[in-house]
Design a protein around this nucleic acid. Structure first.
Lengths: 184, 184
DNA sequence: GAATACATGTAAAATGTTACATGATTTT
DNA sequence: AAAATCATGTAACATTTTACATGTATTC
């Protein structure tokens, strides 16, 4: 799957493993993330499959950069994947919720503290997503040819916002429930 | 992480790999899932770590069952994990949204069809979660000692409901947006 | 002077998926 | 007669994470 995320980005423009990491962190990071090391190894695998090709750009003073470019086979493979419908539900994995599920014997105060900590993290995430809005809106102005792409990017960003708000609401209502029903 | 899910269940009662799979599918499946084969191999690893132990129960007519039991070390390790706060945001992975992100060149009709298909899947999920409510409520009546546990299970179930509703709302509003803004 | 950004990668370990194998009993 | 349930597992493969290794330039 990371494979297709990388092909997707390289379909827009050539890039390096380093830059792709930043691009992912700032846009699809919310819905698909990867570590730097995995990006490097996946790019290497993609090149072996001839879906992308690379060349070295010497860095002046800075390290050399390996710049990847999508090939015709790569574009075909990406389009094939895009046309293929997703026929299954996405499966969540959420370790906070898993831990809470088994936390019936933990002190109520600890659980509430845990939820307060997570609340801060989700609030920060919401702020980051809000900041992204202006950025996406700006791109639409600059590149009208990509109107459809921006529309989808904005839809995904809004998914992130609603997901995060939902999480925050759930945290609040759970804190309240614990405070009122979890006494000893 | 699956490790702790299994320890968590075995902390309530002894079980087999087969039964644990069903239990997971029906309760934490929404927030943490695993394939049968992974459950078997993880149980084996857990036994090697002495966190659980097993014995064979001969099946009459049916296959033998390997029944696992949590050990004292297992309980200690589980409690240690439960007490440890989660200090990071959960990272989503959603292949539908990833595909949509790169779908600017796909026909609008295909994207709308894709969203309609997913809508059905999420509606079914919502139905399953609704059916679960009665089951959890029933358990509370039967086992008042587990009041705290049930409160948390119900909170997690409600998270599932709100997550699913949010997804459905997002699908609806995205279909509308595509219909009104994605014409050629 | 320390931390961050720039930039690449490898190796090992952990985690997860897919495919295979077996075989009786029960349900459709 | 075919499919599902019961029940266990292994092997191969794919994906992901963690840790290691290197070194310059810029910013705090």
């Amino acid at each position: 799957m990371l494979k297709y995320a990388l092909l997707g980005y390289l379909n827009y423009h050539d890039s390096t493993g380093y830059d792709l990491k930043h691009e992912i962190d700032q846009s699809t990071g919310m819905i698909w993330h990867a570590k730097q090391s995995q990006i490097y190894t996946t790019l290497k695998a993609l090149e072996k499959e001839k879906l992308i090709q690379s060349h070295i750009e010497p860095g002046e003073g800075k390290p050399d950069r390996r710049v990847y470019q999508i090939t015709e086979e790569g574009r075909i493979d990406l389009k094939r994947w895009l046309a293929e419908p997703v026929t299954e539900l996405n499966q969540l994995k959420d370790s906070l919720l898993l831990k809470l599920f088994f936390s019936g014997s933990q002190p109520a105060a600890d659980l509430i503290a845990q939820l307060h900590l997570q609340k801060i993290l989700y609030q920060e995430q919401l702020t980051r997503l809000d900041e992204l809005e202006a950025h996406v809106a700006n791109l639409v102005q600059m590149m009208p040819d990509f109107r459809r792409d921006f529309l989808l990017w904005e839809a995904i960003r809004q998914y992130g916002v609603s997901y995060t708000r939902n999480y925050l609401n759930w945290i609040d209502s759970t804190i309240t429930r614990l405070e009122t029903n979890f006494e000893d």
